[in-house]
Structures are given as structure tokens and as C-alpha cells.
């Protein structure tokens, strides 16, 4: 499904700030696999996401999606195949447009022609049905401006937008980190539901080790631009947070120094 081959990325090459963000990443995701990605700050998690999403291009290596080389494909073109949600709920939705209009923009990629009517009646009904499943009361707010909704509701709409025409790959960049605990849980439940129902291959960054181990079916840990842990199956099921921290210290010869990850 997704295949990352020997990918390297250096930032600010040749300056004092030179930073080797990724040093030869090899990673393969099977169809329908839900992988969580953890690592300390600067480990290269977001860099991987941005390379797959097309914000930045790798210095070396290749990225394949469904056997198609997307390494250098333009960002908006690969967006058709890749859905993305970011930490900041403001990024995924247009605040001055209604819920319905936001969804229609995302839905337009599955339709042909630019001059068709923007929102047809059947579209509205389809959106309503999708939102009912979320159980957030959004189905009655189709005509409400998104800017008036809470962060959790906005993030739920962003999720629906990026999966409304099923993508091949879903990238989640700490998409619940900016929400309060109860909203975060709701959004996580919706995420699980959508990913399982539509069988979307998913890569999720999280700072919460507990969540990383419980969500999805595989956990990968990055350290200084390299993959140092790849857990799945039984081994992962029996893993606790403290076990993982020990493994981390052994594999990286470094002490885990991120309070946010340990305490959450």
C-alpha cells in the first residue's frame, strides 16, 4: 500500500543549523493497516507526514502509494489520494462558510465539472446522514458557520471532509492534541469508526504513548530520524507504557525526556 524507501531529509543544509531530520527511513504499510507513530520532539514524525503529504520533497529515496511513485507529485494532486488532519482545528475547515459548504468543497473532488451546482439537495441529505453517525448534534447545523463550532466539532467535520470520498491513505498529525479530554475521546472514537468502516490505511502521530499502544494495530517509534521500534501483534498487545520506555532507552541509548509523553 504505502511504501517508503530509504528516505533522507536534511534541513538547512550547509549551515550551522543543519539538521538531519530523516536518515534512511524504510517503512511499509499494508492495506487497511492503522499505524501509530511516536517519538520525541524533533524525531522526524512530522517530517515523514509532510513528505508523504507533499509539503516538502525528500533529498533521497522514494515514496510509493499503491505501487505508484508519488515522491515528487504535486501537493494538491496527491491530496486526492491522501486525506490529512492537523493538530490545529482551524486548518481543516473554512470558518466563514457553513458546515454544508465546507463539506461540499471536499466532496467536489469526487464530482466532474466545475460549473455544476455547488450543493444539490441530495448532497445536503447525504451530508446530514454522515453527520448523524457522529452523534455530536451536527446534523442540525448544516447551515451554521463552522467558525461558530467548538474545536472538537470542527475536527470531526475535518475528518468527514478528508474521508468523504474515501482516500487511499489517511494522515493524522496529533489531531486530538488541541482538544479537551472528552472532545478528544469523541473525535478518536469517530476516527476509529471511519477508519474501520471504510478500511482506510492510516498513519497517526500521537504524543500519548498509551493511546499509541491502544489505537490501531501497529506502533512505530522514531528517534533522531530513524525507526528504532516497530511493534505489532502479540508483542504490542502485552506492551505497557513502562515497558516501552525501557525499550526506548535500550534502543536509543538515551533517556526519555519528554514529560508530555510520559505523563499523558
Amino acid at each position: 500500500m504505502l511504501k517508503i524507501q530509504n528516505v533522507h531529509k536534511v534541513f538547512s543544509k550547509g549551515t550551522v543549523n543543519e539538521h538531519y531530520a530523516l536518515q534512511g527511513i524504510d517503512l511499509e504499510l499494508k492495506t487497511g493497516e492503522f499505524v501509530t507513530l511516536i517519538g520525541t520532539n524533533g524525531a522526524g514524525k512530522s517530517t515523514i507526514m509532510n513528505l508523504i503529504g507533499g509539503d516538502i520533497l525528500p533529498d533521497k529515496g522514494r515514496i510509493y502509494l499503491d505501487n505508484e511513485d508519488i515522491t515528487y507529485e504535486k501537493e494538491h494532486k496527491r491530496a486526492r489520494k491522501i486525506g490529512r488532519i492537523f493538530q490545529n482545528p482551524m486548518l481543516g475547515t473554512a470558518p466563514d462558510m457553513t458546515v454544508e459548504e465546507n463539506l461540499a468543497v471536499a466532496y467536489s473532488q469526487s464530482k466532474k465539472g466545475l460549473f455544476g451546482i455547488g450543493i444539490k439537495k441530495e448532497d445536503s441529505e447525504f451530508f446530514k446522514k454522515c453527520l448523524e453517525d457522529f452523534d455530536l448534534g451536527l446534523e442540525d447545523k448544516l447551515k451554521t458557520k463552522v467558525g461558530l463550532l467548538s474545536g472538537g466539532q470542527r475536527q470531526a467535520i475535518a475528518l468527514l471532509m478528508s474521508t468523504i470520498s474515501t482516500p487511499k491513505l489517511l494522515l493524522l498529525d496529533e489531531h486530538t492534541a488541541a482538544l479537551d479530554p472528552s472532545a478528544a475521546e469523541k473525535v478518536m472514537n469517530i476516527t476509529n469508526k471511519i477508519v474501520r468502516e471504510k478500511n482506510i490505511t492510516t498513519l497517526m502521530i500521537t504524543h500519548n504513548i498509551n493511546q499509541a499502544l491502544k489505537t490501531g494495530d501497529r506502533t512505530i517509534m522514531l528517534h533522531k530520524g530513524k525507526i528504532i521500534l516497530d511493534l505489532s501483534g502479540k508483542e504490542r498487545e502485552n506492551m505497557t507504557v513502562s515497558d516501552l520506555l525501557k525499550l526506548y532507552e535500550n534502543n536509543s541509548n538515551d533517556i526519555f525526556d519528554n514529560d508530555r509523553m510520559i505523563l499523558s
Binding site: G83, L91, T93, N102, A104, V105, S108, F115, G116, G118
Partner: peptide
Amino acid sequence: TRLGLMIRATGNNEHMVKAS
């Protein structure tokens, strides 16, 4: 129209339009 909606969205949140 669809294009009209896209124009409004671009003025409102370019980031989201790219993602779509």
C-alpha cells in the same frame, strides 16, 4: 457553482482547499 464555492473557500482557508 462548485467553482464558486472553491473560490470562497480559497479566500477563507487556502490550506483546506489544498487538502481538498
